[in-house]
Design a protein around this nucleic acid. Structure first.
Lengths: 250, 250
DNA sequence: CGAAAGGTTGATGTTGATCAAATAAAGTGG
DNA sequence: CCACTTTATTTGATCAACATCAACCTTTCG
């Protein structure tokens, strides 16, 4: 298996920066950046065999909130959901990690959220100690980690306005555009969205119920803005209309 | 003016860590950590005169979303709100920055949110370039920055479940406990909360309307869990009850 | 083929938003 | 310091969006 190879390719294709706090060209689609910027400084995480590859089948838990945090991870294929649970079972998904994304960098002793596989998933695992040492010795690695965390932070803040101030219709529109934007550039045509997660996951990401998600998608379908190729595959027929809805203009 | 002095004291009193990705004792109250851990490695940002002190009066804008991001900031006194706006004026506050907090570390070219003074505020400003250079030369500075960003990320993720899955009553309870927790240890007694922000700011932080915030606080007052000393000063009479409400157990 | 899981649609209920008015607090100029 | 204006907060009445409850349909898989 050339998983290690695949991983390296993926990692080194993502942009590094000459200054952590002024990264250029990081806007727009995550994958759009890949082609533009190239590795400039040595990054042991990217180059070395510091990580261990592992796979996780659908709905299996990788780690739970409160568990001692010894590792961070990078998604190779599949998808992982990060979520928090309330005592009574209410769930909020804070992020879907897709191929190329890293997660599990935290300041606390223990994980502050739970990580589960949305579908069958392959990951690379790094021990916290290894990452810490690599960060000390290699500024490029340290910058890479910071950049990843900053990206996650920026995404969380967009998520906040969605949950706090957008209607169900607007959240669905934003969600579809987000998944479209994060879709690997090569895969599918540029208006076809593959959703690795089920309706309950979407609901828990958007702070809605499964029924409301279903109804909102049906409504977009009825108004001709999207077409459902299957439950998990949606063709966006009018991206502009969707953008207008997502920004509250429509 | 001994503002620079005040700043140094504040900065060096916050915990550093021997390994970025395994910081111990960072749980609980932010200010609780201050007394425990002490600076171990040189951190130029803490030691040097790299920042410029400036003040900002109530409701003035420090920077706006989309503006070129040349600086990051640290709050000395007062409070800053970070928010996003939708085209039609809806607003979501993602964070209140209190004395000791830093903000403005981002991966993008431009700020992704707007920063405004909640009340008259004193800040220290660092140029992005300076911070970037300091990060390269001093691992301790780099670690400090990462730790700050990780703290912000963790806070954003807690905020998400609040907006996505908690009721108005639960959000208010969580909010009061959060402000209580972040209150400087010395100031006031440990059940007295001073709110630097008005009701509209609270509403925009919690994803509610001003009326709902007001009603929820009144209800807590009627049930004897809190007492209002003034609009902006609230005495918590039953912290446990408030905790139970915030975690959805009540 | 039949069971189980996932998704859609409909009827009804509840929480929080909206609209409206009263009250309280904070400024402002005399 | 007071009358007056402006702004912030509270309270009440009504409404709408989304949740809940329930049934039906569709897909998946043994």
């Amino acid at each position: 298996m050339s998983l290690t190879h695949e991983f390296q390719e993926d990692f080194s294709s993502r942009g590094a920066m000459d200054n952590v706090l002024s990264i250029g060209g990081a806007k727009g689609a995550r994958h759009a950046a890949s082609a533009i910027v190239r590795e400039a400084q040595p990054d042991v995480l990217a180059a070395g065999n510091l990580g261990v590859t592992l796979s996780l089948s659908r709905n299996k838990t990788l780690f739970e909130e409160g568990e001692k945090a010894d590792y961070s991870y990078r998604v190779i294929s599949g998808a992982v959901r990060l979520c928090k649970l309330l005592p009574d079972g209410r769930r909020q998904i804070s992020d879907f990690c897709l191929p190329g994304d890293t997660f599990g960098f935290i300041a606390e002793e223990s994980y502050t959220l739970t990580a589960e596989a949305v579908e069958d998933t392959v990951l690379v695992r790094y021990s916290r100690q290894t990452v810490g040492e690599a960060c000390k010795s290699f500024p490029a690695t340290s910058e890479r980690v910071l950049a990843e965390v900053l990206r996650e932070l920026s995404s969380a803040k967009s998520h906040l306005i969605m949950l706090g101030r957008q209607t169900a219709r607007e959240r669905i529109a934003s969600f579809l555009l987000m998944v479209l934007d994060r879709q690997p550039a090569d895969k599918y045509c540029d208006t076809r969205v593959y959703l690795p997660m089920g309706r309950q996951d979407i609901a828990d990401y958007l702070g809605l119920t499964i029924e409301t998600v279903s109804r909102a998608i049906s409504e977009l379908r009825r108004s001709g803005i999207v077409r459902a190729l299957s439950t998990r595959e949606i063709l966006i027929r009018d991206v502009d209309a969707l953008s207008e809805i997502s920004s509250g203009c429509a």
